[in-house]
């Protein structure tokens, strides 16, 4: 039985998905212009990553490894995740129109977000149990949201800063991300 707290702290801080594993960079730079957008995207990612971990674990354990077809992992996972995201979108639109207003535009973007596929593959690689996988998916989503919120705060302030012309918009965002990653590196010294 693995320690769930270690998995959670590891996924949020030590191996933060965005700042140390480089997963989900497209939404990280695409949606971090405004804090309100960052919150919507973060919520959508938390929901999808938790559920994707919960779905891919039984599929891998009971279907792929039982029949010794682990090499189909990539094809199966991407199809399951893409279908699942579509399903979540339809269900939310039907039953929770208010929530759909907040999350709606972000859900389709998540299909090609490598963080979701990444968490499914990492769970298999680390050999987590079902609970461990779900906790890992949830905490990875929290870590993604944390990084996205911090970044959107920085970028809102950068709007008013006097940035050299060639550094405007994306280049300065990358340099700020470097400083943020440097701050997060302090966590890698933690002994768990």
């Amino acid at each position: 039985m693995e320690n769930l707290l270690v998995i959670a702290v590891g996924a949020i801080f030590v191996n933060n998905f965005v700042l140390s594993r480089f997963l989900g960079l497209c939404p990280f730079f695409g949606v971090s212009r405004k804090t309100s957008g960052a919150i919507g995207m973060g919520l959508a990612v938390i929901i999808v990553m938790t559920c994707a971990s919960a779905i891919t674990w039984p599929i891998y354990t009971y279907l792929l490894s039982t029949f010794n077809i682990e090499f189909m992992e990539i094809v199966t996972f991407i199809l399951v995740i893409a279908t699942f995201v579509q399903l979540v979108e339809m269900v939310i639109r039907k039953y929770q129109p208010d929530l759909y207003g907040v999350l709606g535009i972000y859900l389709p973007l998540i299909t090609t977000n490598c963080a979701v596929m990444g968490v499914a593959l990492l769970n298999v690689e680390e050999g987590y149990s079902f609970i461990g996988s779900v906790v890992d998916g949830f905490s990875a989503g929290i870590g993604f949201t944390l990084a996205l919120l911090l970044m959107s705060g920085i970028r809102e302030r950068l709007e008013f800063a006097n940035v050299p012309k060639s550094f405007q918009d994306l280049p300065i965002a990358f340099v700020s991300a470097a400083l943020l990653a440097l701050a997060f590196m302090a966590f890698s010294g933690m002994r768990l």
Binding site: P164, S166, F167, Q168, P171, F174, V175, A177, A178, L179
Partner: peptide, 22 residues
């Protein structure tokens, strides 16, 4: 080699390209 270096390198290369275009 660590993550900050990656962000820094790509940020500076993009700024150089922008500088050239401007």
């Amino acid at each position: 080699t660590l993550p900050p270096g990656a962000f820094l390198t790509i940020g500076i290369i993009m700024a150089l390209i922008n500088y050239k275009n401007i």
